[in-house]
Design a protein around this nucleic acid. Sequence first.
RNA 1: GAGUCGUUAGCUCAGCUGGUAGAGCACCGCACUUUUAAUGCGGUUGUCCCGGGUUCGAACCCCGGACGACUCACCA
Length: 507
Amino acid sequence: MSELNEFVKIRIEKLKALREKGINPYPSAAYDQSHHSNEIVHKFRDLQPGEHKEDVAVSVAGRLMTIRDMGKSVFAHIQDGKGKIQIYIRKDSLGEAAFEVFKLLDLGDIIGVKGFPFKTKTGEVSVHAKTLEVLSKSLHPMPEKWHGLTDLEIRYRNRYVDLMVNDDVRKTFEIRSKVVSAMRKYLDSNNFLEVETPMMHSIPGGAAAKPFKTHHNALDMDMFLRIAPELYLKRLLVGGFERVYEINRNFRNEGISIKHNPEFTMLEAYQAYGNNESVMTLTENLLAEAAKASGHGLKLKVGPTEEEQVEVDFTPPFKRLPLLQALKELGGIDYETVDIEELKRRVKGTSAVVKHIDSLSKAELAYMLFGELCESKLVQPTFITDFPVEVSPLAKAKADNPSLTERFELFILGRELANGFSELNDPIDQRKRFEKQVDLRKAGDEEGMYLDEDFILALSYGMPPAGGVGIGIDRLLMFLTNSPSIRDVILFPLLRHRDDEEKMIFE
RNA sequence: GAGUCGUUAGCUCAGCUGGUAGAGCACCGCACUUUUAAUGCGGUUGUCCCGGGUUCGAACCCCGGACGACUCACCA
């Protein structure tokens, strides 16, 4: 018994009918596209309505998206990688046999059309078909042409369908590509070397996060998918590369939300002989390049509706605000005068879940309150600086105040977008900081870091002073494409596996 | 992990107080050689997410589950 629905059965019958006519519905010969849809539309835009260019030969290929059948003549649109173009098919110019072939086609089929350009009497640049080839028969019906596909689950699970029918989705991922490319270009032209470091780590490090665990069979060794490339990139600074960067995936075994996907793309860049100030400037420049590449320029409007839209200005320099000052200005808490018990009371008054509040220092409490009270108020790009040393185990302490670090986080519209600091290169201090993290792990903090002996060894050889920054590429793209969910900027976001998936079993 | 909402034809959605399931598009047939949501006439399409329960009778009420969306928590 077939599980296929009637639509698929009908299409399979048409597939057989094509084969009986000697047509291979999945030919292997390369198809020569003389033009893309947009090129023809542009090139012949000045034709008069009704004007033909019979002496010009063009060929286009793409997916049949609409068909308007009038018996012996048909208008249709095909969609290629650059857009849509109308084709005009007449029985008398295509020939009886080819016209019969066309009648066996369905929406969704991929075809090639050779013919000449003309402008219809209603003014649309079109291709008058002289020959037509089936390039790939589609067996599954397409979403509805007018309302399109809106079901989020189908859009995310079967992204190819989403891309077929939703132009703005294709646009989003084209912007993503351009933005990443522009950031690469900026880094490359500033003497940064792009590198690739391991994604499988025997010791997860470089961030406070829960890792995914996996196993290597031949080595009988547990491994972790990386939570950050940081420690490897700093090893490269030890090795003598002065400027390195990596754009690739990190994996964190944590919750999924509108701003979190378990695998996400991070740009990390390290600059020897720089510090947190150098990489703040680098971040500003990178984001300015990214904003330009997105096609919006440096000022862009973000928000769900016209009324709620906010203009975000990516013009450097961004505002800089020390964390404790932000706490005072935006949270109304004066760190200098407040006592620790009052901070605890204020933390308990928020919705944050805190396990062992009594073990937290005054600085850590202040850091938590910043997250609760201030982050959401940071709308325009703002560097928050001077984070407590306890929550910054890889950052260099401030010379004039060792309880704080030369670290920054960049916030836009209340969301963290980048994190950077003067890299701690004192191996003795780094060892102590790691040991504190290990103690946190032992005390039950799943996000406490592991002690990476080889990393300490690397620092012991001497790492130049350096600034480093990580920029969340997906989050950046959310701003630049005005996407409400991180899933809208990730082609294949992680969804729970379904056992009741549609199965195409053809017998 | 918790709460709220949702899941009906390939797609977009109706379906009232419980009475054998509907529309538009798509699809099939017929007509039509400049349409563009083509048009006109006729027709087909269902595990109403799954499993229990209540009831003479459940898409609808109750319980459990799956998946998704949103909010919160964690986090970038």
